[in-house]
């Protein structure tokens, strides 16, 4: 009973904990699949770059309208999408590779963001944008999070086949369809939406964690894409729940607690995972007959 109390008690007793849980679960549902594709496209650090890129928009929104969720969200979305679009245009029209053009634009964006914050605000404001606070989710914020997660999943389902083929065999896709380029751009836009919807809850930097850590942990639990996406989503859900409980009982800040749990799960997967985990590699195992 003690254990059940410790695990369920906080959510039964406090509304802010229930809201935090719902928000985190909604975020995990979208972040897992999106993160899995990022990892498989060898773009694991892209989320981090984009988290920096959305800063100026979010900061402008904050400075103009105060702590308004919608203003910060729209601002963040706008700058994030702008960076993705510009980088996509540069990649397609010059010899510059995508990672290099994204680096260029996100660094400009980040510098602008820091400038805006330092001219107008204080460091506390910057911290608010960077680290969020899941325990202060209001109705509007929760609805927005849920809506953006739902939208992300629907759109991902829609572009799934072209996106997979664009990853596996882009030249084949080009020979049968023009959907490859648009699918990639739409996917990058989904990354931005997921990040932005997470930043009020977890902050920009930690929502990257919710996107990447479950995804890279999932690699050790499944061999096929579908399995990996399911595993990533489950690991995200488990991290959200356990992180919130941990934070409630220890007084740790909730966002970092969730990410620390996800990080721990990744390390555990790395060590114990059935597909490529370290333990199975170290164990002497006899080879099979065929």
């Amino acid at each position: 009973m003690m254990l059940v109390d410790a695990l369920i008690g906080p959510f039964v007793e406090f509304e802010f904990m229930r809201r935090a849980l719902v928000g985190c679960l909604a975020l995990s549902l979208a972040a897992g699949p999106v993160g899995t594709f990022l990892m498989l496209r060898r773009m694991s650090l892209f989320g981090d770059a984009m988290a920096h890129a959305i800063l100026p928009g979010a900061a402008l929104g904050y400075l103009a309208f105060g702590l308004s969720l919608s203003a910060m969200t729209i601002g963040g979305l706008a700058t994030g999408l702008l960076v993705v679009l510009l980088a996509g245009l540069v990649t397609r029209s010059t010899t510059m590779r995508e990672d290099a053009s994204i680096a260029g634009f996100y660094l400009i964006s980040l510098a602008l963001g820091v400038t805006i914050v330092s001219i107008k605000g204080s460091n506390v404001d910057l911290l608010r944008v960077l680290f969020g606070s899941i325990l202060a989710l209001d109705d509007a914020a929760m609805m927005l999070l849920a809506a953006m997660s739902t939208g992300t999943l629907l759109v991902l389902a829609l572009i799934f086949r072209p996106l997979v083929m664009e990853c596996v065999d882009p030249s084949f896709l080009r020979s049968v369809s023009r959907a490859g380029g648009p699918a990639h751009l739409v996917f990058l836009a989904l990354v931005v939406t997921t990040l932005v919807s997470g930043f009020n809850a977890l902050g920009t930097l930690l929502s990257v964690g919710m996107m990447m850590l479950p995804a890279i942990a999932a690699r050790f639990w499944a061999v096929e894409l579908t399995g990996m996406i399911i595993a990533a989503t489950l690991i995200g859900l488990v991290s959200s729940l356990s992180g919130l409980i941990l934070s409630f009982h220890t007084g740790l800040p909730s966002g970092p607690a969730i990410i620390l749990v996800a990080g721990l799960l990744w390390l555990l997967s790395l060590a114990l995972g059935p597909h490529g985990g370290l333990l199975l590699k170290l164990l002497p195992r006899k080879h099979l007959e065929a």
Binding site: D169, S175, L225
Partner: peptide, 15 residues
């Protein structure tokens, strides 16, 4: 139908 030299395929992608 066009089959290019196989280098373009990402064989690590889990499908």
């Amino acid at each position: 139908a066009y089959l290019p030299q196989s280098a373009a395929l990402d064989r690590s992608f889990p499908i």
